[in-house]
């Protein structure tokens, strides 16, 4: 047998190209994709907030009844939470090497899901509720 370490890899592993992480460039690519969508969505949301600031409750409530506003505001936490979960994962992996690493990664995912779910619940209630 050859001493070449690359011979240890099966052709299937090489073709899949997923490397040691098992997920290849997925983390990098999803971070970039959500960065792109974040730019458009956050700019929309900032404009929306500027328009809504100091407006009475009824006006804000009425704005969410507009399906385009409801849909765009709903996309904000979806894109945001995926992006921030990936970012925090990198931060945890860089600085936490103790037994806390796994619990923190789990908490990170739960937090991102909670933020997204709570936002979507509120937006759905605002858009469809009486």
């Amino acid at each position: 047998m050859s001493a070449d370490p690359f011979k240890m890899r099966t052709p299937l592993r090489r073709v899949r190209g997923l490397g040691v992480s098992g997920s290849g460039t997925e983390h990098f690519w999803l971070q970039r994709m959500t960065a792109l969508s974040n730019i458009a969505l956050i700019l929309f949301f900032v404009v929306f907030l500027v328009a809504m600031h100091d407006e009475p409750y009824a006006v804000v409530r009425e704005a969410f009844r507009n399906p385009i506003i409801g849909l765009l505001v709903a996309l904000v936490p979806v894109s945001f939470s995926i992006h921030m979960r990936l970012g925090m994962e990198i931060v945890i992996e860089d600085y936490v090497h103790s037994t806390w690493k796994l619990p923190l990664r789990i908490i990170n995912t739960f937090f991102a899901v909670l933020i997204a779910a709570a936002s979507l619940f509120a937006i759905a209630k605002l858009s469809f509720g009486a």
């Binding site: 969410f64 970012g87 925090m88 931060v91 933020i115 709570a118 936002s119 619940f121 605002l126």
Partner: peptide, 20 residues
């Protein structure tokens, strides 16, 4: 700033839940 935005989403959710 990334970590700051992460934690600040709590305020985003608060505003939405308050409105709802």
């Amino acid at each position: 700033t990334g970590v700051g935005l992460y934690l600040g989403t709590v305020f985003f959710v608060w505003w939405l839940l308050a409105a709802a």
